[in-house]
């Protein structure tokens, strides 16, 4: 349903997204994982061009329903945002307006896309949505500060779902929540996806979120997708050295206690610079001579499993 071709995003001198290709099918859950500053959020936001005017430069294509979103005017974008592509954000504490009731914020988002509906319909829809995300509907006129963090995230989900988007982009939806709530919110999203049949693009740096949630995983490093695979393939047979190291740097229950965690040495690259070869090369323990000078293309390993690494040539 949405197809990204060779997307590049630049903020002044920072080249945040570097030639990303990605495709999301109807009803599919795709996860993007990567460390802080690798361009995950920039990628997600550029799907609806959610940047202040003139701060970001785009090239490439984001095809939605046969149209390139990147060429849309602000007015056309507003029709897409919320109605076709909904979005939820990381921090439920700051993503709700403190001076408006949650009910108002949900009806706002509904009426914006269905201006022909009456206020009464909107309130009814809001109550349905609250019920759907598991907030008692008598909370409709409550202010955000009277709700707990988990409730607020639920309210945010209700706001994002108000106009029934076909694609929900969840930008680190569980980062600000504690572990038990993370599970609840992920279950809720999964459940809603089944009920409403929408696609989800989830962005996270937490591999455990990915494992139980996504169908397809894209691993992002320095603005590029370096590996893409089904969730099982990725965890069982990670192919890119970065992914392998990433998985090994995570504590596991079945790991002997004496075994130390394996961090990835070095620091992520500076995205304001361009690299001659593979961007992971300086931190890679298996790097070849070719890695320093030539950017690896994307190699197919198995059907549906690709990796941008010269080792897979």
């Amino acid at each position: 349903m949405i197809k990204v071709k060779n997307l590049n995003v630049r903020f002044k001198n920072v080249h945040a997204v570097r030639g990303v290709d990605l495709e999301i099918q109807n009803g599919e859950t795709v996860a993007i994982v990567g460390e802080s500053g690798c361009g995950k959020s920039a990628l997600a936001k550029s799907l609806v061009k959610l940047f202040p005017k003139k701060t970001a430069e785009f090239s490439g294509e984001v095809i939605y329903n046969g149209q390139n979103i990147l060429t849309f005017s602000e007015k056309e974008l507003r029709k897409i945002r919320g109605k076709e592509i909904g979005m939820i954000f990381q921090d439920p504490m700051t993503s709700l307006n403190p001076v408006l009731t949650i009910g108002f914020q949900i009806t706002e988002s509904y009426l914006r896309h269905f201006p022909e509906k009456s206020k009464k319909d909107a309130v009814k829809r809001t109550e349905e949505l609250l019920e759907l995300v598991g907030i008692p509907k008598d909370r409709i006129y409550h202010y955000p500060h009277t709700l707990s963090g988990g409730m607020r995230q639920r309210a945010l989900i209700a706001i994002a779902l108000a106009a029934s988007p076909k694609l929900l982009i969840a930008d680190e939806p569980t980062t600000a929540l504690d572990v038990t709530l993370q599970a609840q919110i992920l279950d809720l999203l999964k459940d809603l996806q089944k009920k409403l049949g929408m696609s989800i693009l989830i962005i996270t740096h937490d591999l455990s979120v990915v494992a139980g949630f996504a169908d397809k995983v894209l691993v992002m490093y320095a603005g590029k997708i370096i590996e893409s695979a089904n969730v099982d393939d990725l965890f069982e047979t990670p192919s890119h050295p970065y992914t392998q190291r990433l998985l090994r740097s995570k504590p596991r229950l079945d790991m002997p206690r004496s075994e130390p965690l394996l961090p990835i040495d070095g620091t992520p690259p500076d995205l304001s610079k361009q690299f001659a070869g593979c961007s992971f090369c300086p931190r890679c323990t298996e790097s070849l001579e070719i890695c320093k000078n030539e950017t690896p293309p994307i190699f197919n390993i198995n059907p549906g499993h690709t990796s941008a690494c010269w080792l897979k040539k």
Binding site: M87, S95, N97, L100, R112
Partner: peptide
């Protein structure tokens, strides 16, 4: 710069709506 402004934008709100419903009430 608050997230709820970005969130409102992500849901299709235009500038005048954000100003009148989100920003000015917060300055009361």
């Amino acid at each position: 710069e608050f997230d709820y402004v970005t969130a409102a934008r992500a849901l299709g709100a235009n500038s005048s709506w954000i100003l009148s419903k989100h920003l000015i009430p917060n300055t009361t």
